[in-house]
Protein backbone atom coordinates (compact mmCIF):
# COMPACT_ATOMS: atom_id res chain seq x y z
CA UNK A 1 0.00 0.00 0.00
CA UNK A 2 2.92 2.33 0.61
CA UNK A 3 5.09 3.62 -2.19
CA UNK A 4 8.21 4.51 -0.24
CA UNK A 5 10.24 6.20 -3.02
CA UNK A 6 7.27 8.45 -3.79
CA UNK A 7 6.85 9.15 -0.09
CA UNK A 8 10.47 10.27 0.21
CA UNK A 9 10.10 12.36 -2.91
CA UNK A 10 7.03 14.12 -1.45
CA UNK A 11 8.58 14.66 1.95
CA UNK A 12 10.49 17.91 1.23
CA UNK A 13 7.32 19.49 -0.22
CA UNK A 14 5.40 18.64 2.93
CA UNK A 15 8.19 19.93 5.17
CA UNK A 16 8.09 23.29 3.34
CA UNK A 17 4.30 23.34 3.71
CA UNK A 18 4.63 22.53 7.41
CA UNK A 19 6.71 25.68 7.78
CA UNK A 20 3.88 27.66 6.16
CA UNK A 21 1.38 26.15 8.60
CA UNK A 22 3.64 26.88 11.58
CA UNK A 23 4.35 30.42 10.41
CA UNK A 24 0.67 31.25 9.99
CA UNK A 25 -0.31 29.62 13.31
CA UNK A 26 2.44 31.34 15.28
CA UNK A 27 1.64 34.72 13.76
CA UNK A 28 -2.05 34.18 14.54
CA UNK A 29 -1.17 33.22 18.11
CA UNK A 30 0.84 36.43 18.53
CA UNK A 31 -1.85 38.72 17.07
CA UNK A 32 -4.58 36.71 18.77
CA UNK A 33 -2.76 37.21 22.06
CA UNK A 34 -2.83 40.99 21.63
CA UNK A 35 -6.53 40.90 20.69
CA UNK A 36 -7.16 38.52 23.57
CA UNK A 37 -5.54 40.83 26.13
CA UNK A 38 -7.54 43.81 24.83
CA UNK A 39 -10.88 41.99 24.66
CA UNK A 40 -10.20 40.18 27.93
CA UNK A 41 -9.60 43.52 29.67
CA UNK A 42 -12.75 44.92 28.06
CA UNK A 43 -14.70 42.03 29.58
CA UNK A 44 -13.46 43.07 33.04
CA UNK A 45 -13.79 46.82 32.53
CA UNK A 46 -15.92 48.80 35.01
CA UNK A 47 -17.98 50.26 32.16
CA UNK A 48 -20.98 48.10 31.20
CA UNK A 49 -20.77 49.32 27.61
CA UNK A 50 -17.17 48.14 27.22
CA UNK A 51 -18.03 44.85 28.90
CA UNK A 52 -20.86 44.35 26.41
CA UNK A 53 -18.52 45.21 23.54
CA UNK A 54 -16.01 42.57 24.66
CA UNK A 55 -18.81 40.06 25.14
CA UNK A 56 -20.17 40.75 21.66
CA UNK A 57 -16.74 40.20 20.10
CA UNK A 58 -16.38 36.85 21.82
CA UNK A 59 -19.95 35.82 20.98
CA UNK A 60 -19.51 36.57 17.28
CA UNK A 61 -16.05 35.13 16.72
CA UNK A 62 -16.63 32.03 18.80
CA UNK A 63 -20.12 31.41 17.43
CA UNK A 64 -19.31 31.41 13.71
CA UNK A 65 -17.44 28.47 12.15
CA UNK A 66 -13.88 29.40 11.26
CA UNK A 67 -14.42 28.23 7.69
CA UNK A 68 -17.22 30.79 7.28
CA UNK A 69 -15.09 33.52 8.87
CA UNK A 70 -12.28 32.80 6.44
CA UNK A 71 -14.64 32.81 3.46
CA UNK A 72 -16.10 36.09 4.64
CA UNK A 73 -12.65 37.68 4.94
CA UNK A 74 -11.72 36.39 1.50
CA UNK A 75 -14.75 38.03 -0.11
CA UNK A 76 -15.11 40.97 2.27
CA UNK A 77 -11.62 42.50 2.08
CA UNK A 78 -11.88 43.35 -1.65
CA UNK A 79 -15.27 45.00 -0.98
CA UNK A 80 -13.75 47.46 1.47
CA UNK A 81 -11.02 48.46 -0.97
CA UNK A 82 -8.34 45.90 -0.17
CA UNK A 83 -8.30 43.81 -3.34
CA UNK A 84 -4.71 42.56 -3.16
CA UNK A 85 -4.33 41.17 0.32
CA UNK A 86 -1.96 38.21 0.09
CA UNK A 87 -3.34 34.77 1.01
CA UNK A 88 -0.89 34.63 3.91
CA UNK A 89 -2.16 37.93 5.30
CA UNK A 90 -5.79 36.91 4.84
CA UNK A 91 -5.15 33.61 6.61
CA UNK A 92 -3.37 35.32 9.50
CA UNK A 93 -6.14 37.93 9.84
CA UNK A 94 -8.82 35.24 9.90
CA UNK A 95 -7.06 32.98 12.39
CA UNK A 96 -6.04 35.89 14.64
CA UNK A 97 -9.57 37.28 14.91
CA UNK A 98 -10.90 33.87 15.93
CA UNK A 99 -7.99 33.07 18.24
CA UNK A 100 -8.44 36.47 19.91
CA UNK A 101 -11.92 35.49 21.07
CA UNK A 102 -10.72 32.24 22.65
CA UNK A 103 -7.62 33.84 24.19
CA UNK A 104 -9.78 36.64 25.62
CA UNK A 105 -11.72 34.10 27.66
CA UNK A 106 -8.46 32.47 28.81
CA UNK A 107 -6.93 35.83 29.79
CA UNK A 108 -10.07 36.89 31.60
CA UNK A 109 -9.68 33.84 33.82
CA UNK A 110 -6.02 34.70 34.33
CA UNK A 111 -6.76 38.33 35.20
CA UNK A 112 -9.42 37.29 37.71
CA UNK A 113 -6.91 35.03 39.49
CA UNK A 114 -4.65 37.98 40.35
CA UNK A 115 -5.38 39.34 43.85
CA UNK A 116 -7.08 42.76 43.69
CA UNK A 117 -4.76 44.10 46.40
CA UNK A 118 -1.87 44.09 43.95
CA UNK A 119 -3.67 46.51 41.67
CA UNK A 120 -4.62 48.79 44.56
CA UNK A 121 -1.00 48.81 45.66
CA UNK A 122 0.14 49.54 42.12
CA UNK A 123 -2.37 52.39 41.91
CA UNK A 124 -1.05 53.88 45.14
CA UNK A 125 2.49 53.67 43.77
CA UNK A 126 1.38 55.77 40.82
CA UNK A 127 1.39 53.16 38.07
CA UNK A 128 -0.82 54.01 35.11
CA UNK A 129 -3.51 51.60 33.88
CA UNK A 130 -1.32 50.66 30.92
CA UNK A 131 1.67 49.94 33.13
CA UNK A 132 -0.47 47.86 35.45
CA UNK A 133 -1.73 45.82 32.50
CA UNK A 134 1.66 45.22 30.93
CA UNK A 135 3.85 44.89 34.02
CA UNK A 136 1.58 43.32 36.63
CA UNK A 137 -1.50 41.72 35.15
CA UNK A 138 -0.28 40.23 31.84
CA UNK A 139 2.93 38.56 33.11
CA UNK A 140 1.12 36.86 35.97
CA UNK A 141 -1.91 35.94 33.92
CA UNK A 142 0.30 34.36 31.24
CA UNK A 143 2.09 32.27 33.85
CA UNK A 144 -1.21 31.07 35.26
CA UNK A 145 -2.79 30.33 31.91
CA UNK A 146 0.20 28.91 30.04
CA UNK A 147 -1.28 25.38 29.77
CA UNK A 148 -4.50 26.83 28.33
CA UNK A 149 -2.50 28.98 25.91
CA UNK A 150 -0.54 25.95 24.70
CA UNK A 151 -3.85 24.17 24.18
CA UNK A 152 -4.99 27.16 22.14
CA UNK A 153 -1.82 26.84 20.04
CA UNK A 154 -2.73 23.22 19.29
CA UNK A 155 -6.26 24.27 18.33
CA UNK A 156 -4.82 26.99 16.08
CA UNK A 157 -2.47 24.61 14.28
CA UNK A 158 -5.44 22.33 13.66
CA UNK A 159 -7.68 25.22 12.62
CA UNK A 160 -5.06 26.41 10.15
CA UNK A 161 -5.91 23.36 8.02
CA UNK A 162 -8.83 25.46 6.72
CA UNK A 163 -6.76 28.34 5.36
CA UNK A 164 -6.64 26.85 1.88
CA UNK A 165 -10.03 28.53 1.31
CA UNK A 166 -8.24 31.89 1.19
CA UNK A 167 -5.75 30.44 -1.28
CA UNK A 168 -2.82 29.62 0.96
CA UNK A 169 -0.89 26.39 0.27
CA UNK A 170 -0.50 25.13 3.81
CA UNK A 171 0.26 21.57 4.93
CA UNK A 172 -3.26 20.29 4.25
CA UNK A 173 -3.59 21.92 0.84
CA UNK A 174 -0.17 20.64 -0.24
CA UNK A 175 -1.07 17.07 0.75
CA UNK A 176 -4.38 17.50 -1.09
CA UNK A 177 -2.51 18.57 -4.23
CA UNK A 178 -0.12 15.64 -3.92
CA UNK A 179 -3.00 13.20 -3.48
CA UNK A 180 -4.80 14.68 -6.46
CA UNK A 181 -1.76 14.09 -8.68
CA UNK A 182 -0.54 10.68 -7.49
CA UNK A 183 -3.85 9.14 -6.28
CA UNK A 184 -2.09 7.74 -3.18
CA UNK A 185 -4.81 9.06 -0.89
CA UNK A 186 -4.10 6.82 2.09
CA UNK A 187 -0.37 7.37 2.00
CA UNK A 188 -0.53 11.13 1.48
CA UNK A 189 -3.23 11.76 4.07
CA UNK A 190 -1.60 9.47 6.64
CA UNK A 191 1.61 11.45 6.18
CA UNK A 192 -0.40 14.63 6.59
CA UNK A 193 -1.93 13.35 9.83
CA UNK A 194 1.53 12.27 10.95
CA UNK A 195 2.91 15.77 10.47
CA UNK A 196 0.16 17.27 12.62
CA UNK A 197 0.77 14.64 15.31
CA UNK A 198 4.50 15.34 15.20
CA UNK A 199 3.84 18.94 16.23
CA UNK A 200 0.76 18.62 18.41
CA UNK A 201 1.50 15.55 20.54
CA UNK A 202 4.75 17.02 21.98
CA UNK A 203 2.93 20.34 22.50
CA UNK A 204 0.13 18.58 24.38
CA UNK A 205 2.68 16.68 26.47
CA UNK A 206 4.52 19.91 27.29
CA UNK A 207 1.22 21.56 28.23
CA UNK A 208 0.36 18.64 30.51
CA UNK A 209 3.73 18.87 32.30
CA UNK A 210 3.29 22.61 32.84
CA UNK A 211 -0.23 22.10 34.14
CA UNK A 212 0.90 19.52 36.71
CA UNK A 213 3.77 21.74 37.80
CA UNK A 214 1.41 24.69 38.23
CA UNK A 215 -0.92 22.55 40.34
CA UNK A 216 1.95 21.42 42.55
CA UNK A 217 3.04 25.02 43.10
CA UNK A 218 -0.44 26.03 44.13
CA UNK A 219 -0.93 23.02 46.38
Amino acid sequence: MFDWPLLLQNLPLLVDALLVTLKVSLAALAFGFVIGILVGSLRLSPSPLLRRLGGAYIFVFRGIPLLVQLLLIYYFLPRIGLPNVSPTAAAIIGLSLAAGAYIAEIMRGGFLAIPGGQLEAAGLLGLSAGQMLLRIRVPQAVRLTLPALINEMILLIKASSLVSVVGLADLTRTAQNLAASDYMFVQDYLMLAGFYCLINIPLAFFGGVLERRLKEQNA
Binding site: K158, A159, S161, V186, A193, Y196, N200
Partner: peptide, 13 residues
Protein backbone atom coordinates in the same frame (compact mmCIF):
# COMPACT_ATOMS: atom_id res chain seq x y z
CA UNK B 1 -4.10 10.97 17.47
CA UNK B 2 -7.67 12.19 17.01
CA UNK B 3 -7.07 15.19 19.26
CA UNK B 4 -3.85 16.12 17.48
CA UNK B 5 -5.09 16.08 13.90
CA UNK B 6 -7.50 18.53 12.25
CA UNK B 7 -11.06 17.36 11.67
CA UNK B 8 -10.63 18.10 7.96
CA UNK B 9 -7.65 15.71 7.73
CA UNK B 10 -9.65 12.97 9.47
CA UNK B 11 -12.47 13.52 6.99
CA UNK B 12 -10.05 13.25 4.05
CA UNK B 13 -8.63 9.99 5.42
Amino acid sequence: IIRSTPFLVQLFL
